[in-house]
């Protein structure tokens, strides 16, 4: 029998703690067991090296996101090796090959009419001349009045849209962003 095992991809912006290993170890137990049984096993995982928290940390430390990702990816490899993990492949999401495959899948979804375009209003910083992702907008929570990030208020746990915030600030330059229309792709849920 063929067995595919996918371990979750730890996020490369900080060290692994025991909670990570606690949820990932069972993958290695399964892989070793099925191999000993004589089954064909493919056990993969990798470091998640994309996303906003890595770029924010890189900006804070004055290094490139790639340097942050490299540091923790290397550390993850060392930890997994020492703990005896037997991944057939442990890779990373800033790998060029990963980008190509993801883009191919995206195009396939587009060709199969699973995704569509829609215009939405989004926070735009005219000083930085760029649209801002959720976590790059900070301000006052419209529900509890405390400081909050554009994705969620830690104080009252309300899920927010960056444009909901009162007294919005761009995390990069501190100026107030405004709403501006932009086109995005959306998943068409009823087609699945």
């Amino acid at each position: 029998m063929n067995i595919f095992i996918g371990g979750a991809w730890p996020y490369a912006n900080g060290s692994l703690h025991l909670g990570h290993i606690s949820s990932l170890l069972s993958g290695d137990i399964l892989a070793r067991y099925y191999r000993a049984k004589g089954d064909e096993v493919l056990y993969v995982s990798g470091s998640d090296c994309n996303g906003t928290p890595i770029s924010i940390r890189a900006r804070q430390e004055g290094v490139t996101p790639r340097e942050i990702a490299n540091k923790f990816h290397r550390e993850f490899c060392h930890c997994f090796e020492k703990l005896g993990f037997t991944y057939d492949l442990y890779t990373r999401t800033d790998d060029l090959h990963h980008h190509e495959i993801v883009q191919k899948i995206f195009q396939k979804l587009l060709a199969n009419n699973k995704i569509y375009k829609k215009t939405v209003e989004q926070a735009y910083c005219s000083t930085c001349t760029q649209f801002l992702p959720d976590r790059y907008v900070e301000g006052t929570c419209p529900h509890c009045g405390k400081d909050a990030r554009g994705d969620q208020c830690d104080e009252c746990a309300t899920i927010l849209d960056p444009l909901d915030l009162l007294t919005k600030r761009c995390k990069i330059c501190g100026d107030e962003p405004a709403g501006k229309d932009t086109e995005h792709f959306y998943w068409s849920e009823h087609t699945c």
């Binding site: 995982s45 999401t93 990963h98 190509e100 899948i105």
Partner: peptide, 12 residues
């Protein structure tokens, strides 16, 4: 990120 399972298989 979840597409990583598929891309990692291809890379392997």
């Amino acid at each position: 990120a979840v597409t990583g399972y598929f891309s990692a298989s291809k890379k392997w």
